[in-house]
Amino acid sequence: MSERVAVRKTYKLFIGGKFPRSESGRSYPVQNTNVSLASRKDVRDAVQAARAAVAGWSGATAYNRGQVLYRVAEMLEGRRDQFVGLGVPTVEVDEAIDRWVWYAGWADKIAQVYGNANPVAGPYFNLSAPEPTGVVGVVAPAEPALLGLVSVVAPTIVTGNTVVVLVAETAPLPAVTLAEVLATSDLPGGVVNLLTGRPAETAPWLAGHMDVNALDLTGVTDPGFAAELERAAAGNLKRVLRPPAGPVDWYADPGLGRMTAFLETKTVWHPKGI
């Protein structure tokens, strides 16, 4: 009997819940496999998908979003071996799953912590509530490949934003595997879009895109490039999360900063006693 030939996997982009190849048809080799090399038109398509997903995702109840994210964690748990097989240390996989669950728990609590009933001098209920910003562009950190990606994606989507993530050029395989996890959870298509390739090429298009509401530059290591992206982002006054000033301990308690960075506060005056 002849020897069985293994089926090789093609690592593709994740846009709108589907796995298309790059519009440009380009790919680049990573760890002896070919990975799609996204172009500016893939950025455009991803932003379109993310925009289309905003209404449904931000309109879902916080409880529902939390449940969907817990489901993602369940799926992650089932794929532990696959991540380890890609070279992600076991301790990192565990931390990434725990991080995801931790953020999932915040879905229906963040409004209680950051919302407020404000005392005002008048016959009004005055309420402030945090609301999602909309479409967030993310330049993901290269290291640690999985934990870093989870640590920037989970806090952004848990509050109702949708994201277009530019995965680091050197670490696309765990990202595409994470996309497979997301696709098999109940996460609506378009809430997370992952583009593999060279952020140096695609990030300026994402930063300048007028239909993107915020930009997370965590994965940008060159200060000059970060400044250039920030200038492009000013075109429509995007909220920008600057790159960290020094080395980040990704295993430490992340705090709430990454969630609140992409929230905006809505204050409502409601007449009472009339």
Partner: peptide, 9 residues
């Protein structure tokens, strides 16, 4: 303009 536009505008 050289940058992608959006339906908001």
């Amino acid at each position: 303009t050289g940058v992608y536009s959006g339906p908001d505008y």
